[in-house]
Design a protein around this nucleic acid. Structure first.
Lengths: 202, 202
DNA sequence: ATATCTAGATAGTACAACTATCCAACCCGC
DNA sequence: GCGGGTTGGATAGTTGTACTATCTAGATAT
């Protein structure tokens, strides 16, 4: 497949594909001459993953490269690798020394979950809780219980569905699942809001 | 309160506050002279809301202004106003004519929820489903059932908690709740993943 | 042989979100 | 009543991101 075909198949402009090549998101095609290269279905798939991450999931090109690099280089410690991969997904808490995360800690203790201050999602939770609080819509314990219970049920389903194959495919699945299912979850919540509101108010 | 105090109280630079004033996100203070104005607690609160929306919720200044305008001008039709407000929250589906949303429609029918093609979250859901599909991690019916059930439970709780006061406060609450609780929901899911994974794998 | 395509390099664009500077007017303490 | 710091208002500059366009020179298709 030539660049122009890759472009038309994926709907991405040739200039943009060149940009991704320069930025190291996409591997170069097999050179057929000094001014020619051929691309495979694998390139097309990768390009779709790039567009899914930069588009729907809202990642920057820089973060997308980080995540692809993690997916591409399988590491022995799956658990740690998953942590790093998910930490590369937005949102990004400002790295001003959060030594403790009092709000997040209280929430996790209430839910009976482990509190690991090194995990990025803890800082994300802390920031989100603080933002809600400062905007005057702080969450209370009951809401935490409701959210926590249902999200844990979702997470249990997700983990049960994790493929047991090679680490790299597990990581790819986990990263894509985290990044690409999140917009689905938010959209479903919004639609459920509308449906519930229509039934109870209308 | 002077600008400098507003700045130090909120942690936002004076130059940035001036920028928000120019952009119409923040109302001018009461002029005390040709080169002086005083700001109130209300300004401080508004500034915190702006930072919560542009920061944690990831909205652009432009979208933030739209949402604040909706909150500020109460409309008779609460249901419609809520729809417009939530539509101003990310993500923003490309407005290339989505006349139908086959994936979203199938999901909503399966969940027994109403399908209204005019609602922004439907297009968001369609885009998210398509992105997951194209990246090779399409969701199946069972996952839809699990996600749908639990998110509906969350939504029922949210709606039951809606304040019954003035429309403008309902709208502010709904918009802030939608925008600011979403990061909390995502963080809780990620932390639940970690916790479940640690317990089952570790 | 001529029109089209290609890789690789470099430069340019468009937008967002600030950030900095300047000015003249003002107020505050002394 | 005066000097230092502050203010509103205007304007210009900066940084970063994600492309987009142009150019060169060789390769390929018809």
């Amino acid at each position: 497949m030539r660049v122009s075909e890759l472009a038309s198949e994926s709907g991405v402009a040739v200039a943009t594909i060149k940009y991704y090549l320069r930025e190291g998101l996409l591997a170069p095609g097999a050179a057929t001459s000094s001014t020619g290269a051929s691309y495979t279905e694998e390139h097309l798939r990768r390009l779709r993953v790039i567009r899914a991450l930069t588009g729907s999931a809202g990642l920057s090109v820089h973060r997308t490269r980080e995540i692809l690099a993690i997916i591409d280089s399988p590491q022995p410690d799956l658990y740690d690798t998953l942590g790093r991969a998910v930490a590369a997904l937005p949102p990004y808490p400002d790295p001003e020394l959060h030594t403790d995360h009092p709000r997040a800690r209280a929430v996790l203790e209430r839910l009976g979950q482990l509190y690991d201050p090194g995990y990025a999602a803890v800082a994300q939770l802390e920031d989100a809780l603080r933002a809600a609080e400062e905007a005057g819509v702080a969450i209370d314990d009951e809401r935490i219980d409701v959210y926590g219970t249902h999200l844990r049920a979702i997470a249990e389903f997700d983990v049960a569905r994790m493929p047991q194959g090679a680490p790299s495919s597990s990581i790819e699945y986990a990263v894509l699942g985290t990044a690409l299912y999140e917009p689905i979850i938010l959209a479903l919540r919004r639609l459920a809001h509308q449906d519930v509101a229509a039934r109870t108010l209308g």
